[in-house]
Structures are given as structure tokens and as C-alpha cells.
């Protein structure tokens, strides 16, 4: 069990957990700012970004893909803002226009491009391939200290670890201004904080997390992790710091339980093939949110008693 676990399940679980945390952290702020759907928009526009990067660079190497996807995310956010202001259109509608159009453009480019030689298609972009990120060189827990085996780790693990670290450090560094601008924009402005820049920086950090996670696990997990763990955590507590801690716990739990269910769940039901791990992680996060909606201590709005529901 040990050797097989390290070889086949350890790295996907680690990648899943890191990706989930990287998305859930900025998700907390986006949730409180009522911008939860930015994550949705970003994960859609990543597709045209990577297709364009492929057309320009001709490879599916990680760096151009990440750059393309990141650029697409930033451009999309700028476009949403521009359309909102220029056309005087409500935020939700502006977002809907931008991300569907860019996604459609990405699909069209993908279909018109010869990508038969490389692994690049819409379904892969949506579902990711968490199951395939195995560590073949490992032959047991001892491999964790074996440099030769460590060199064979899937590169996605390193990238998502770096992205997760960046997000954690940024959140820690900018905690105070982020919290201030999120909860009391007027006060933040009066004490001289650059409110707009902080808001944009948050979106960029979310884009970094989304793009890195997308590379490893596909866009379903990205959208689910931006919203479900922070939303469930929001129903657990009134204190924002505690909420962030809960959201990290929920994200980790979703990733581990989801992966295990996807890999071993079908066996329990008498089926032989594993199901989509990304889909299952999203499902588990949804179950956690559903339980929180039904039973969490702080699920109601302030002033709404137990009897009034």
C-alpha cells in the first residue's frame, strides 16, 4: 500500500491540495467583495490565453502557457471594467459578455489550429488530468529523501507549490490593506490606501492562482475552490481570520476526500474504472457547502432569528 500510494496518489493529492488552497485564499476576499464570479470569468478566459500562447510559441511548454493565460486573465478583467464604464452596463452582464466571447474565440482558434501533435483540447482544459500526475520514480516513502527519485516529480507540483506560496505570502503581506479595503472601502480611502490598485492586485493574484491551478487540475476545480470553501467557511464564523482558516481546512478536505472518492469510490460500488478526480473534488466541496448551508452556526444573516426561517 505504502509504495503504491506514494507512486500513484501522493503527488496528485498534494497538487490538488495546493491548487485548492491557492484558489480558496483569494476566494475569501472575492466572496466578501461580492466578486465571487471573477474566478469563474478568469477560468474561462484562460483557454484563449493558452491557445494564443501555443500559436505564438509553437510549444505547450509551461512558461509560455502560463504567461498567455495570465495575460488573458488580466486583459479580460480590464475589458470587463472598460465595458462596464463605456457602455454603462451592469457588472454581471459585462462579465458574461466578456468571458463567453473570449472562451468562444479560444474554442474557435483551437478547432482551426492543428493541435493533433500536442495535448491541447477543450475537455482537457475543463477537466484537467490530475490522475495522470503520478510519480513513477518513487518506490516508497523513502523516495522522499532520494534526490534521483525527487528529480522525477511531475513539474506541475513544483509550479503549483510556487504559485501557492506566492499567494500565501502576498495574502500575509497585504493582509491589513486587503481586509480594510474589503470591509470598509470609504475608511480605507480616507487613510490613503490605493483602493483601486489593491482591488486590481487582488484580481491579479487570483489570476495567478487560477492559471497555475488550471495547469495542473483544469478549470472545474478552479471555479469550485474560489467559491465553495470560502462560502462554507463564511457560514461557520463571524470573524474573517477564522473564516480564512476554515476555508483552507475545507479546501484541503475537499481535495483529499474528492481524490480518494474518485480513485477508490467506484470500487466500492462494484465499478472498475476511476471517475474524474477534478469533478469529484468539486462535488465534495459542494457537499461541504451544502452541509454548511443546512447546519453551520452562522448560516443566517444578522438579525434573522432561528424562528423566522
Amino acid at each position: 500500500m505504502g509504495a503504491e500510494f506514494v507512486q500513484l496518489s501522493l503527488t496528485p493529492i498534494l497538487i490538488g491540495v495546493l491548487a485548492s488552497i491557492a484558489c480558496a485564499l483569494p476566494g475569501n476576499f472575492l466572496l466578501m467583495r461580492r466578486q465571487a464570479l471573477i474566478g469563474d470569468a478568469i477560468s474561462h478566459v484562460v483557454l484563449p490565453g493558452i491557445v494564443l500562447a501555443f500559436l505564438v510559441s509553437g510549444t505547450i511548454a509551461a512558461v509560455p502557457m502560463l504567461l498567455g493565460a495570465g495575460a488573458a486573465a488580466v486583459i479580460a478583467v480590464a475589458l470587463i471594467e472598460a465595458i462596464k464604464r463605456l457602455g454603462r452596463i451592469e457588472a454581471g452582464a459585462a462579465m458574461g459578455v466578456v468571458f463567453t466571447t473570449l472562451f468562444a474565440g479560444g474554442v474557435l482558434m483551437l478547432e482551426r489550429t492543428d493541435t493533433s501533435g500536442v495535448h491541447l483540447d477543450v475537455e482537457h482544459a475543463l477537466m484537467g488530468s490530475l490522475e495522470s500526475l503520478i510519480w513513477l520514480e518513487a518506490d516508497g516513502w523513502a523516495s522522499l529523501t532520494d534526490p534521483a527519485a525527487l528529480a522525477g516529480l511531475p513539474p506541475e507540483l513544483g509550479r503549483i507549490a510556487i504559485a501557492c506560496l506566492i499567494v500565501v505570502v502576498l495574502t500575509w503581506l497585504f493582509w491589513r490593506p486587503l481586509v480594510l479595503t474589503t470591509f470598509d472601502e470609504g475608511f480605507a480611502r480616507t487613510i490613503g490606501l490605493p483602493v483601486a490598485a489593491i482591488g486590481f492586485g487582488l484580481v491579479v493574484a487570483a489570476a495567478v492562482a487560477a492559471v497555475a491551478a488550471f495547469d495542473a487540475v483544469g478549470s472545474i476545480i478552479v471555479i469550485a475552490m474560489f467559491i465553495c470553501p470560502p462560502a462554507a467557511a463564511r457560514l461557520m464564523t463571524d470573524r474573517f481570520g477564522v473564516q480564512v482558516a476554515w476555508s483552507i481546512a475545507f479546501a484541503t478536505l475537499s481535495a483529499i476526500v474528492g481524490y480518494v472518492f474518485a480513485g477508490y469510490g467506484p470500487l466500492w460500488f462494484g465499478l472498475y474504472d476511476a471517475v474524474s478526480a477534478a469533478g469529484m473534488i468539486a462535488t465534495v466541496s459542494g457537499v461541504i457547502l451544502a452541509l454548511a448551508c443546512l447546519f453551520a452556526p452562522r448560516r443566517r444573516r444578522l438579525g434573522e432569528g432561528r424562528g423566522s426561517a
Binding site: 461580492r34 471555479i223 465553495c228 474518485a262 469533478g279 459542494g286
Partner: peptide, 17 residues
């Protein structure tokens, strides 16, 4: 917005499963 995002991603994820 949170409700929309949650339903969207969870139903879609379950559909993929």
C-alpha cells in the same frame, strides 16, 4: 454571486463525474 458560482461549479463537476 456566491450561490451562482457554487451551483455552477458543483453541478458541472458532478456532471463531469
Amino acid at each position: 454571486d456566491a450561490a451562482i458560482g457554487a451551483v455552477l461549479s458543483v453541478f458541472f463537476g458532478f456532471g463531469i463525474v
